[in-house]
Design a protein around this nucleic acid. Structure first.
Lengths: 164, 164
DNA sequence: GTTCGTGCAAATGATTTGCACTTCG
DNA sequence: CGAAGTGCAAATCATTTGCACGAAC
């Protein structure tokens, strides 16, 4: 049984209905290899159904989030907006790296995080139910580009000269 | 030299001016043991200067963020709003635990994170400039309360009975 | 005195919601 | 048919911004 059929099943189990809009949004998500915003899902899906509404996209995404089918997170360095992660159900324990230059997001496992959790609980008590780990930096190809260009020589006076 | 004097110095170094509003906001932050929102800083500070404006609080907090004097982060499970962290300059390498019940935030060090960064770079290349790690769960005292209460017996039919 | 900062009100922008209409089961 | 979902427009709410006035240096 494929992903969409599984989601449909969970949906029916909670008294929900499968509609053409929901199917379209699910199919759009299934094709994503990135972490789209609601607006991006909307734009991509609307190519096949121009009268789809952004509210419906939001409602569907939030509903999928409750079902545990997609994740959502916000990243620093861009305008504050949720990005949705269709990979969470296939691969629940992943974390994110985001490249500051090309904005690529890399998903990676972090089994060592369990040790960090254990350390925390040993020191402070309590219990940990979930964790969010995000790395920010330069991805491999952006780092290579920056290195091959060499450092920029920044001279404020030279810039001022241009204005004369 | 105390914290406020240090901040004033950084401020002057970049052509900024010290005003009564900024001093008040700094003093308010210095007394915080939690991670207040802009609105909360505003409410606390306004007790001493009722004509302080929320815009000024935002502008000051963003400026302190640029100076590296305060940090800002958002937490899940509440309405999306920035929380400001006055402790970042005294203790730059800390991360956050947030209790799902009492909303207490615990700051903790995570030196092991360096190993996770090294592992990531070994696998994917690139470079890491910053990291955000947030744990969500129950703090020690909330966990004890939950455990001492014992599990709740949830019976939907019993709830329906009340409506008759 | 000139530059920088503040207060105020209005703008922004992502997200949510009320409501009349439509569709699924 | 009746509950659940959609489209549309309007509401929300945190945050930002334009502008005229006031304060710091």
């Amino acid at each position: 049984m494929d992903w969409i059929a599984q989601v449909t099943e969970r949906l029916r189990a909670t008294g929900g209905r499968m509609t053409s809009q929901r199917r379209l949004i699910l199919e759009t998500l299934a094709q994503c290899t990135d972490h789209p915003t609601a607006e991006e899902v909307y734009r991509r899906a609307r190519q096949r159904a121009p009268d789809l509404n952004l509210s419906t996209v939001y409602r569907t995404l939030r509903w999928l989030e409750e079902l545990g089918v997609v994740g959502s997170q916000r990243f620093e360095g861009e305008r504050p907006q949720d990005r949705f992660d269709p990979a969470i159900s296939a691969n629940p324990d992943h974390h994110h790296f985001r490249c500051r230059l090309c904005n690529t997001i890399i998903e990676f496992p972090a089994p060592l995080l369990e040790i960090l959790k254990r350390d925390f609980i040993a020191h402070y008590g309590g219990s940990i139910e979930s964790a969010s780990l995000i790395f920010y930096g330069l991805c491999q190809s952006c780092l290579q580009k920056v290195e091959s260009y060499g450092p920029l020589s920044f001279n404020p006076d030279a810039i001022l000269d241009h204005t004369r």
